[in-house]
Amino acid sequence: MEGRIIDVNGKKLYTEYNNSFKNKPTIVFLHDSLGSTQLWRDFPAKLAEATQCNTLGYDRLGYGKSFPMLTHERENNYMESESDLLNDILNELNINDVILFGHSDGGTIALITASKYPEKIKAILCEAGHIFVEDVTVKGVKDALEAYKTTNLPERLQKYHGDKVEMIVKAWTEIWLSDRFRTWNIEYLMKNITSPLLFIQGEADEYGTLDQVEKTISQVSGNAEKFIIPNIGHTPHKENPKLVLERSKEFIASVLNS
């Protein structure tokens, strides 16, 4: 698919938009804290084919083929800011009928967006998202930072992010490991979510416990389901793509047929 750079509020962002299915929703894929459009691999195309829905993927500022960040320093509400930017992207591309599929930070951004802009969001698939900070999350980020310092992780990331790798690793690890972020919590937003929700989580997720799932689905106002996968970690769509595709397809079909 042809990708292109769009300018949204002065931010130059790489997008891949496939809108070949007329009068069908667009599944918007929101990547994780070290991810990019490219790192979703063929998962979006397969889900598009299975559901006959359009797809939009984009690299957040600083990631993938988007332009670099101006600074690595993040405010506590950085994911709330990303949800506002996502709304502006949807306006720019004139997309009003949206299914969000977010992984990790992207899952959190999906939840926030659905709470703030419910009129656009038809459904949410939140994979391994967070609504508060846990000890296991902090340990996971510390372990990732150690891997960045001691393995070939920088070279592997460079393939997708070029010379922006150090900036995105700093941006992610510094905020999540800071004392000021320990109190970050968006549970208060959950009641504003009225769209149907599927929360996908690996039982062995190294970045979050099942408390993230239970506290999310118990507090949203719309219908909420969970899909917990045994022996799977933080990236179910990569660790067992067939299973996640099948469950996602079922969920989307149930939303579109309701």
Rank of each mutant, 00 (worst) to 15 (best):
T183A: 14
G202I: 01
F181V: 12
E174C: 08
Y188F: 13
T194Y: 07
L198M: 09
I186H: 05
L197G: 07
A204Y: 06
K191D: 09
A204P: 11
L189Q: 15
E187W: 00
Y188I: 00
T173V: 08
Q219G: 05
F199G: 02
Q219H: 14
S195R: 10
Q212M: 12
S195H: 03
T183E: 14
E203V: 09
I175H: 05
L210A: 04
Q212S: 00
T216M: 07
E206Y: 07
P196C: 04
Q212K: 06
D205R: 04
E214S: 14
G208Y: 05
L210G: 09
S218C: 10
G202T: 07
I186D: 00
Q201D: 07
T183F: 04
T183Q: 11
W172G: 12
N185Y: 10
M190I: 05
T183G: 10
I175Y: 01
E203P: 11
I186T: 15
Q212T: 02
P196S: 00
N185H: 08
Q212H: 13
Y207N: 03
I217T: 13
D205L: 05
E203C: 02
K215T: 13
G202Y: 01
N185K: 06
L177M: 05
D205Y: 11
W172L: 04
L189D: 09
L198V: 02
V213D: 09
K215Y: 10
L189F: 08
E214H: 13
K191E: 10
L197N: 06
S221E: 06
S178H: 09
P196F: 02
V213R: 01
T209A: 04
K191A: 06
S218E: 12
Y188M: 08
E174M: 09
D211Q: 08
S178I: 11
I186S: 02
M190L: 15
L210M: 04
W184D: 04
K215Q: 15
S178P: 12
N185P: 00
E203L: 03
I200A: 01
W184T: 03
W184P: 00
E203W: 02
I186A: 06
D205C: 11
K215S: 13
I186V: 14
R180H: 11
S218V: 07
Q219N: 15
E206D: 09
T216L: 01
W172E: 05
P196Y: 03
V213P: 11
